[in-house]
Write a protein that binds this DNA or RNA. Sequence first.
DNA 1: CGGCGTGTTCAGAA
DNA 2: CTTCTGAACACGCC
Length: 257
Amino acid sequence: MPELPDVEGFRRVLAQHTGKRIRRVLVKDAGVVRGASSRRFAATLQGRRFREPDRHGKWLIARTDADPVLLFHFGMTGSLSWHAPGEPARRDERIIFSLPKGELRYRDLRKLQGLRLLRQDGLKKLLGKLGPDALRISQKALLEGLAGRRQIKAALMDQRVIAGLGNLLVDEILWRARIAPARKSNALEQREAKAIYREMRRVLRAAIPTGRVPPRPSWLTGRRDRQEAKCPRCASKLRRATIAGRTTVWCPRCQRR
DNA sequence: CGGCGTGTTCAGAA
DNA sequence: CTTCTGAACACGCC
C-alpha cells in the first residue's frame, strides 16, 4: 500500500505516542532490520522515549531522545499500528515495540524494505538523495523537476524529483490532470504542468484523512483492478500497459497522446 | 506451475 | 551524464 498518504497515517499513529518510553523491542523477524543485528537494534532502542515523528516522502523518521534515529520504510506491504497488550499476534508482524498500555507493531508481508538506525550523517545522506516532499514542494520546484525528456509518469515516480508519490497516486493525478502517462515531461505546456501540480495537491489532501489512496468509484483508483474497467468521467474503456516499468492505467479519451 | 503486485536499488545497455 | 530495462528482494493470490 504505502505511498505518501499511508505513511502520513503511520506517522500519525506514532505521533500519538510521543513522549512514551519504549519498554521492550521484540524482533520477531531479523529480515526487516537493515544494517544492524536484532540484538543491537533492540538494545539501542529499549529505554528511549519517542519524540514527535517526521516524514519525508515514503520514509517515516522516528526520532527519540538520543541518536541514532529510527527509520521506517514500508515497501509495498508494510504498516504500523497500535494494539492493546495481548491482542493475538499475526504472522506478518515482524517487530513489536512495547510501550506503556500497549504496543506498536510493524507489519510487513513481503519484507521489501524495513527498519534501520541511522546517525545524523547517515540521515542527511539519505534525505539528500530525495527531492522535496510532495506535500511541501513548491509549484516552481516541481516544474523544474520536469526538465529532461522522460515520460511524465517516470518523472513523478522518481523520488529524487519529488518524494512520496507512487504508482497509484501518479496514475490518479495524471488522470485528473488529463495528461497521458507517456507524454514527455519537458514537452508539457505550462498549463498542463500546473494542472499536474494542482491535481496532485487535491489528491493528496483527499487521500491523507483516509490513510490511503481511496478506491472510490469516482476515482481512477476505484476502477483500476477491474477488468473491462470504465473511466469514471467519460465511461470509455480504460487502457492498461506497462509504462516506466509499472502497471499503468489511463483513459485514452480523457488523456490524449 | 506461471504471472502479478501500491517500492527501491543495482547492473548493464543505449 | 541521462534514460531505460530487467532482475532481485519476498510472499500471497489468481
